[in-house]
Design a protein around this nucleic acid. Structure first.
Lengths: 373, 373
DNA sequence: TCAAATAATTCAACCACTAAACAATTTCAG
DNA sequence: CTGAAATTGTTTAGTGGTTGAATTATTTGA
């Protein structure tokens, strides 16, 4: 069955779906599958796959490459691969001490990367975003000189993002109601791009999803100055109704505990934020364990990935967290919760941002072909 | 676009999708829409809608009824409505002091309802389920005498349910690893039905979704002996990776607080479960507020529905909960969290269970038509 | 009484997929 | 060295489902 929705479906939707299916199979399947292998993997006929592949090759999304090693008799296959000269995503990140932009191609490879280290807190938002825009523009031009076509840009910010890319609050940057999309679009070299803005932890979770490959459901916890989380379920990011999910840093751990900047008491951030972390690792681990137990009890998430400042000290945190999980997760006895460090380092959010763009092309190649026609 | 998935799509899937779309439009749209109105609402052509409606009428899912009041000139329309003599769902519930079964027709109307009050804790699972099975069989026979066709049964239990309807743990019933599906299927009158089992709070959330209509995203909190929760997002129930989401009763509220039956300390259940509730309502409200704040911070859920034992004392709980939400939810200042009592009473879970069956028919009418052919 | 309006059906055209036959290219047995 | 078997990829006729335009049906209102 197709997804329940309120829009009609016609033959062109079938084509769009199956184009995405073929592209997905090439991207996530074995090395350089043949048309016949794609047909076998998807259940489509070889005739249909051939027609779909023709469209994707003509549209510059797939290329024929050397076939996989032969096995037995028969006409040799033509291998298919994602192109490395087609659409690409521009990922940007602004953080407390860090500006960065990168370009990722359809295969997921990072083709350009520019970063600038500097404390952004004294700068006003307009200046910081202008500097980031210049960085992004350089990345875009360098990528396009390489034959890539930047299909869009996404920006990761450590804060709450509202509709239209409006940054409602970014406490650690001192921002409030900043129109980041407009600021980036003001850079001439970026003016023609679709630009989106999203929370840093959400995008880092997507970055982790891309590189880790395996887990279709996990919680990514990002320990920075603040603590954010990105929830991936069924291979997709869950953003919440208004896009404000994942604020694990302000989950109450000790109801009458330390005062928090947010006005509450006993927030996780006060015990496991970057500052508290320096003081008392065991207590941070316990606090994390308590908050994560709540997540697992509520959402039944089987895997937790620790990123940001937590990744390098994963070994020191592990025991303390797991002790609390064992004690406090109701289903701990039925199935364990897996804890692991993040695979990507500081670039996770930026990589995830770029990934949202290429993800868009991969999930709806028909739209890309139409636009390129 | 269609949903990304790993299965191919063919013309028959288009048909299946559009049949569901038409049925959905009749079910959720204005009163008794005409074919032309459906075409306008869905974007399909009138020719296509006519063909789809023919199939649905022939398959006994839609009936022509008196048209809506005329407005101006033109040939009068034929109104369409869900049939009340077609497929129906059998909903069952077993709880600490309560057995019940009901039959709900395609329109959502309760057509049969049987209940038996008795403490189930002394009875062993087999006896209790046999008694429930007899109740369900009576409901089914009475419904089928009315022209309904029971398409399946669903059972609500206060516990964790694993694959294949195995009840892994139901603490308040004292159950462990009970094969509830097999027990119900042992009743001859139910042997031919597809039977599913789900958590009581999850199903109550679905029941609430059906009657409340409006909110596409909310958390339903069920205060019984234990405390469960069902999360609805985008009009669908979120079950978690293993179906064990919603265990809000064992979210830690006071890390060093009262010991809980589960082996942990400071679980919400110890402060806001039915027993604690009798002692100290303000404290229960505060504890609920703390746990719910965690949910909102993590998931950005805009609406919380209080059901079970909480519904009748909603007024007494409201202030205490809202105080904590205001203090502890990071985004409380950006958009308020709505708190409201459940619309359905004790029958919520049973209604939700029956609803899963008719939901199945509504979401894939093509499968029903094929089976009836 | 007839024109205008609206509802529903019919029919030719189109699009995408399937199934089966065919063409191309290789392996391997004799 | 030759030809049968195997495998890939293409071609072609057929089918199912939607569209759009024409047609039929039925009512209102000038």
């Amino acid at each position: 069955m197709l997804s329940p929705s309120t829009t009609p479906v016609r033959q062109s939707s079938v084509r769009a779906h199956n184009l995405a299916l073929v592209l997905h199979t090439v991207a996530n399947g074995a090395n350089h599958p043949s048309r016949a292998a794609i047909a076998a993997a998807t259940g489509l006929t070889r005739a249909t796959v051939s027609a779909l592949v023709d469209d994707l090759v003509a549209g510059g999304l797939l290329v024929e490459v050397d076939p996989p090693p032969r096995t037995g008799a028969g006409r040799p296959a033509a291998g298919l691969a994602l192109t490395s000269t087609g659409p690409a995503g521009l990922g940007c990140e602004i953080n407390v001490d860090y500006l960065a932009a990168c370009v990722v191609d359809l295969t997921g490879a990072v083709r350009q990367r520019f970063a600038e280290h500097a404390d952004q807190r004294p700068a006003d938002p307009a200046h910081a975003l202008a500097a980031l825009g210049r960085l992004a523009a350089r990345a875009r031009l360098a990528a396009e000189a390489d034959g890539l076509i930047v299909a869009g840009a996404a920006l990761a910010v450590p804060g709450l993002v509202g509709d239209g890319g409006l940054v409602r609050v970014a406490p650690n940057l001192g921002w409030q109601d900043v129109d980041a999309v407009a600021a980036l679009r003001a850079v001439p070299e970026l003016a023609d791009l679709p630009i989106t803005v999203d929370n840093e932890a959400n995008l880092a979770a997507l970055g982790e999803l891309r590189v880790s490959g395996g887990d279709p459901a996990f919680l990514y916890v990002s320990g920075e100055v603040g603590i954010g989380a990105g929830l991936v379920i069924g291979g997709e990011l869950y953003r919440g109704v208004r896009g404000w999910s994942g604020e694990i840093g302000h989950v109450t751990v000790y109801p009458d505990g330390r005062e928090c900047r947010c006005g509450s008491r006993g927030c996780l951030e006060q015990y496991a934020g970057q500052e508290a972390l320096a003081d008392d690792v065991p207590r941070a681990a316990a606090a994390l364990g308590i908050a994560l137990s709540a997540v697992v009890n509520l959402l039944d998430v089987p895997v937790i990935v620790l990123g940001g400042a937590y990744a390098p000290i994963f070994a020191a945190l592990r025991d303390g967290i797991e002790t609390e999980l064992r004690r406090r997760v109701l289903t701990a006895g039925l199935a364990p919760v897996t804890l692991r460090p993040a695979a990507l380092g500081a670039d996770a959010a930026m990589r995830g941002a770029a990934d949202t763009i290429i993800r868009g092309v991969r999930e709806d190649p028909a739209a890309w072909l139409r636009a390129r026609a």
